[in-house]
């Protein structure tokens, strides 16, 4: 498939935004349980939510560049019963709304009590919003990944690993960003967040490697024989039916030599996982190093997403083997 930059930015930006929000709320839960010192509501939660919201909005804006008719984009919420794309279109603004409320509640110190646990722990409105936001963030990972994983004949994508990867990679980049952000806004939780970022990046490396291994072993189900229904081992396409290009010759291939694909694979394995792991381990609570770790990881994830698309081989390409 042709990697479209609007989709690369969409999926990586909202992934980092979701991860950052999850990181903020994780800190709040730990602080609530008195496992962490409570960071400053303004500086950490409110500004952190603003940063997460900016990433989500950035992703949404990027997605419009993918559409032929962006002015009709509102229509895409219609078929949520059958279409994962439609579900994503609903869950993304819902999450944006909750992140906005969550940040706003922390900013204004609006914390009416919702529930007092038997242990005497007070759960206020920000906890309620955090729980809803967490559910939405995970739902959004599921929707985004299922857009790709639900297409059975794109076999590189049609696997539960796709969902696991989107979740772990979004989480990893979000926690790395949260650690870098905390170095300025709440130094007392930087270590905690950097530790989680390390774990998530490591898990991401494992699951992404698993899907690389899986995809390397895939055998195509569709062949030129099933595509035109002729049983003969030697079939060669002589003409695709036209001389210039068409949608079918542009949309479904990345148009780069196989060597590029291989180098991008090593680049993203290094930039999205190995380098950030080293930086996270070495950073301590140094803000600039953590920021560098996030920058490298984000660029690495862009490369990872490019590879994700480029590697998927659409069966329609069987009909376009000979570009006349």
């Amino acid at each position: 498939m042709r990697p479209d930059f609007s989709v690369l930015f969409l999926t990586t930006l909202i992934g980092a935004g979701q991860g950052l929000f999850l990181a903020l709320f994780t800190v709040q839960l730990y602080a609530l349980a008195a496992l962490l010192p409570a960071p400053d509501g303004h500086a950490f939660y409110a500004h952190g939510s603003l940063l997460a919201l900016a990433l989500l909005v950035g992703g949404l804006v990027a997605s419009f560049f993918h559409l032929g008719r962006p002015e009709r984009a509102w229509r895409s919420a219609a078929k949520w019963r059958t279409s994962w794309l439609s579900r994503e279109v609903i869950v993304l603004p819902a999450l944006m709304g909750v992140v906005l409320l969550y940040g706003g509640a922390h900013l204004l110190g609006w914390k009416p009590t919702l529930l007092i646990l038997p242990s005497g722990l007070v759960l206020d409105a920000t906890v309620g919003l955090g729980v809803v936001g967490t559910l939405l963030a995970f739902a959004l990972f599921l929707c985004t990944a299922m857009i790709y994983a639900c297409l059975p004949f794109l076999r590189e994508w049609a696997s539960p690993l796709t969902v696991v990867n989107y979740t772990l990679l979004g989480g990893a980049s979000g926690f790395t960003l949260a650690a870098a952000f905390a170095a300025w806004a709440a130094p007392e939780v930087t270590h905690f967040l950097a530790g989680w970022a390390l774990v998530l990046t490591l898990l991401g490396l494992v699951s992404r490697s698993a899907s690389l291994i899986r995809n390397a072993r895939l055998k195509p189900k569709s062949t030129i024989q099933t595509a035109i229904g002729i049983k003969h081992p030697n079939i060669v396409q002589k003409a695709v039916g036209f001389l210039g290009g068409s949608f079918n010759t542009r949309e479904f291939c990345h148009g780069k030599p196989a060597g590029t694909l291989r180098s991008v694979k090593w680049v993203f394995l290094a930039a999205a996982f190995v380098v950030p792991l080293a930086l996270l381990a070495a950073a301590g609570s140094s803000g600039p190093v953590l920021a560098l770790a996030f920058a490298v990881q984000y660029l690495g994830l862009l490369a990872e997403r490019w590879f994700f698309f480029a590697q998927a081989n659409h069966p329609q390409n069987l009909y376009y083997q000979a570009v006349a």
């Binding site: 659409h314 069966p315 376009y320």
Partner: peptide, 14 residues
Amino acid sequence: CIGCKYCSWACPYG
């Protein structure tokens, strides 16, 4: 149609 091209990805026949 919003031109999202998703259906063309979902058609195995191009």
